[in-house]
Amino acid sequence: MVQQVASHGFLEQVVREGAMFPDFMLPSAEGRLVSLDSQLARGPVVVSFFRGEWCPFCRIMLAALAEELPRIEAAGGSLLALTPETGGLALTMKTFHNARFDVLCDVDFGVGLAAGAVFRVPKLYRARCEAAGLNFPERHGNSAWCIPVPATFVLDRDGRVAWRFVDADFSHRAEPADIIAALRQLGAQ
């Protein structure tokens, strides 16, 4: 899957450093509407896409971010985690990690698509998911069989991408230390 995603020039499509991140307002795990601009009003924002509650790499990443949150905040940033999963799975994901940051539900991949970070699950991988009992149509509330690449963006106060991490290999994730360094650099500017 990694090769297939990489070979389609996928990473070219993901919103780049210097570009504006798409504006959005999405429901949070607790059922509030959270807008990017109200978050940006408080300072730089880290936006991180997650594939879902079922993904072991996402769990590791989420745990790491939950642990590093005090340092992310100390560097002036706040954090928004986006998942395409519906039906309360965002809250499951959040409570499992005791996360203090907002986990938002990117219903029907709208923000993921606008950020160029969504792809259709290749046939072979889909068959493996189905065999493992992973019901994406039920989890996503649509039968598109898409998921986001687990990309992470650091946005400056204007909502411009100052730094990003994107890798077609879903086991590779942004290092919290790099996120914090990017935030500190923004703070120094």
């Binding site: 959005f24 307002m25 698509l113 598109a144």
Partner: peptide
């Protein structure tokens, strides 16, 4: 794919439109 892609497009537009409508 048409209904799925249209739903995703609507979701992308709605996320932006909502943020704009709030402002």
């Amino acid at each position: 794919m048409r209904p799925h892609l249209e739903a995703m497009l609507d979701a992308a537009d709605a996320a932006t439109a909502l943020a704009a409508a709030k402002r």
